[in-house]
């Protein structure tokens, strides 16, 4: 049936559909660092005329493409799916491509700096290797024993739902690099690795739970978490990171998962 939808025109839809150009003046204060030029990091201001409905990533592109080609950052998908562009924006970890300028008070200078706790290599680019190493260390793959079934393994919709939240992770490192424990001690696995361990520990098809729990029981494992919730606040995928860590801790105590 063709039910007309015109009566459903909300103010939000009107605003979304407007074609009137509207730009404001915004200052971006960016933490620059390039050891090829100088060993010291510094703040640099860029003034832009930009539509506040645009993304911070659009602003960074505008700066790179029109003002200073040497400004360096990672990005790919531009819509919050690839995990390339986690950065500290106004003191909080976010994806530049998922943050609209209007939502972060463009009246004041917007600060942009690299995520903390990983070595800065140039401007907003950090060394991701330790982050991915921690991920690899938790054995992030399905472990099974016995013969493979010919068809798919069966899994009830409820069992599938049990670990749904942690399958959303895009390995952007926003959580890990917002964690004060990780800042102080880079040996800590960090929330992202635990999230990815959780994804398998609570998968009814997996039989590697014990092994993974032993790894996380280590001195650099889950017990370092002090439940500050920074990670949950930082996660652009809305994953309840702290809850996942708590569930892993509980599983370690009860050995039930």
């Amino acid at each position: 049936m063709s039910t007309p939808t015109l009566d459903k025109h909300s103010a939000a839809l009107d605003a979304a559909e407007t074609t009137a150009a509207h730009t404001i003046s915004v200052t971006f204060r960016i933490r620059r660092f390039n050891p090829e030029v100088s060993e010291d990091a510094r703040w640099e201001d860029f003034q832009l005329e930009i539509d506040p409905k645009e993304r911070v990533l659009d602003a960074l592109h505008k700066i790179k493409w029109e003002l200073d080609g040497s400004l360096t950052f990672r990005r790919s998908c531009a819509h919050g799916i690839c995990g390339s562009d986690a950065m500290r924006i106004n003191g909080r970890n976010r994806l530049a491509c998922k943050t609209l300028i209007k939502d972060i008070n463009p009246e004041k200078p917007i600060t942009v700096e690299a995520i903390k706790g990983l070595t800065v290599l140039k401007d907003l680019v950090v060394d991701m290797e330790p982050f991915f190493q921690a991920y690899r260390d938790v054995m992030p793959f399905l472990i099974t024993t016995g013969n493979e079934p010919t068809r798919e393994r069966l899994q009830s919709a409820e069992d599938r739902e049990r670990f749904d939240d942690t399958t959303k992770c895009i390995l952007c490192a926003a959580c890990t690099t917002s964690c004060p424990v990780f800042w102080n001690d880079g040996q800590y696995f960090g929330p992202a690795a635990i999230v990815n361990a959780h994804r398998f520990i609570f998968d009814s098809r997996d039989e590697g739970g014990e092994q993974r729990l032993e790894i996380l029981n280590d001195k650099d494992g889950v017990w370092r978490c002090r439940t500050t919730f920074n990670c949950t606040d930082a996660c652009p995928r809305g994953i309840e990171v702290t809850k996942a860590i708590q569930e892993v801790k509980r599983a370690l105590i009860t050995r039930r998962f």
Binding site: F141, L142, P149, E152, R153, Q155, A157, R160, F163, D206
Partner: peptide, 8 residues
């Protein structure tokens, strides 16, 4: 079998 969590 590699672990992909399909909807069920």
């Amino acid at each position: 079998k590699m672990g992909l969590p399909f909807n069920r």
